[in-house]
């Protein structure tokens, strides 16, 4: 009985010992600003100028080859930029131009046209290796975008979460909140990941979801532990339900300044279906698609 109790308590304390994640910040050294003649293009330049100064990064301007490059360059100089310019003839070429590698961030304004909005954003997010920051509102004080970040996480078992960009971008004394939503579709992902062929009943599915939530919570605590001694606050919340309404509800009550979705690992963008829906539904704040 004594041995059993010792084992029980040791395992309780082992469980309490959260593995601290090793989260390195990204030294962003290249900003790719995409200007396609949208009303919010100037905000892209404002943000690019801020990020250039903050990270001492090189800024590249990408604009459609059919446009005259001189006004674009003039507008950039007005914002204190002296960028390299790269005209492109197609979205495919643009994707190729901006997919240089890591330590890079792509900035683009949301197209006004409904159709272009979906096609352009999806093509960029799917095609480019670096994360894409989509601007949806005019920007006056770019630093404010990084004051209160909501990083949405889904329960996708196969996704490798990446917190490096959020940790890098959040401003000093800013807040990074991690919202992990576990929804029913995650059960299918788990089944696929574990190669489970059997059907699970409602009770088993509930158990599976709860276990996913526990797993996620432990993981999130490791992220919070990694933020110890950093100049910003990190907190987390767990939610059960559908991703889009859950995140929308959080955004409605949270005064967030940036939404981060998807994951980004070794130069590959992985944005799940729910992240795509989220990316197109949330319109009031900028979205960083990893």
């Amino acid at each position: 009985m004594k041995e059993r109790s010792i084992d029980e308590f040791e395992s309780i304390f082992e469980r309490a010992s959260i593995p601290v994640l090793d989260i390195e910040e990204v030294a962003i050294n290249r900003i790719s600003a995409v200007l396609k003649g949208e009303p919010l293009d100037d905000s892209v330049l404002v943000l690019a100028a801020y990020l250039k100064k903050r990270f001492e990064a090189q800024v590249d301007l990408h604009y459609p080859a059919i446009c005259d490059g001189e006004p674009v360059l003039k507008a950039a100089r007005k914002r204190g930029l002296d960028p390299q310019t790269q005209p492109f003839v197609s979205t495919a070429e643009l994707v190729g131009q901006v997919s240089i590698g890591r330590a890079q961030l792509v900035l683009m304004a949301e197209p006004v046209e409904e159709e272009a909005r979906f096609i352009d954003i999806d093509a960029m997010v799917q095609g480019t290796a670096p994360p894409v920051l989509i601007i949806r509102q005019p920007i006056d004080k770019p630093i404010d975008i990084f004051a209160r970040i909501l990083h949405s996480l889904t329960g996708n078992f196969q996704q490798t979460q990446n917190f490096s960009y959020s940790f890098t971008l959040v401003k000093d004394r800013g807040t990074l909140e991690l919202l992990h939503t576990v929804d029913e579709s995650d059960v299918e992902d788990v089944k696929k990941a574990l190669r489970m062929s059997l059907e699970v009943d409602a009770y088993e599915a509930k158990e599976l979801l709860e276990s996913l939530a526990r797993h996620a919570e432990r993981y999130l605590k490791g992220v919070v532990a990694a933020s110890h001694k950093r100049p910003f606050n990190v907190s987390y919340a767990l939610a059960m339900g559908e991703v889009v309404p859950t995140v929308q509800a959080a955004l409605a009550g949270g005064k967030y300044t940036l939404l981060v979705v998807g994951s980004h690992e070794e130069g590959h963008s992985r944005v799940s279906t729910s992240d795509y829906r989220l990316m197109h539904t949330v319109r009031e704040i900028p979205v960083l698609a990893l």
Partner: peptide
């Protein structure tokens, strides 16, 4: 300090 701060009392 970092090593012990990784313990989470609520996990118990």
């Amino acid at each position: 300090r970092a090593l012990v701060m990784a313990f989470d009392e609520w996990e118990t």
